[in-house]
Design a protein around this nucleic acid. Structure first.
Length: 115
DNA sequence: ACAATGACATAAG
DNA sequence: GCTTATGCCATTG
């Protein structure tokens, strides 16, 4: 359990900035296993606490089921994450981008990210 | 080592 | 755009 995929996932989730959300697939891709999204979710299932698991959502921005999805949604809202009327996270604005975004029309997004 | 599990992703209808 | 079906891969029993 120590030096496993889970540990990597935990480390990565720990580094998700405030007000930003990352999808399971995104995290899995960072770890080098774009198909290991399920394992990421499994790691969250372990609930190691002190971990911002609330910032981890599905690829389409919907909150995963399992544990207290409403609570997580509230936390994200409190962090300033924009939510769509459908109850999904506005991935267009709040998806976490560890790298600098290309100089596209997303200048507003860059400002929002604090880059 | 094998089979089952799962807070997902992507493609197809 | 939403729903259904299939794939995926590490962890666990």
């Amino acid at each position: 359990m120590t030096n496993s995929f889970f540990q990597q996932v935990y480390m990565l989730v720990e580094q998700i900035p405030y007000g930003r959300v990352a999808s399971y697939g995104q995290i899995a891709r960072m770890l080098g296993n774009p198909r290991a999204a399920r394992q990421v979710g499994w790691a969250m299932h372990c609930c190691p606490a002190h971990l911002p698991w609330q910032r981890v959502v599905k690829a389409d921005g919907s909150i995963a089921g399992g544990m207290a999805p409403e609570l997580r949604r509230s936390l994200l809202q409190a962090e300033g994450v924009r939510f769509l009327p459908d109850g999904r996270v506005d991935m267009r604005r709040c998806c976490w981008k560890p790298y600098v975004v290309e100089e596209s029309e997303d200048a507003d997004l860059l400002l929002h990210n604090g880059i």
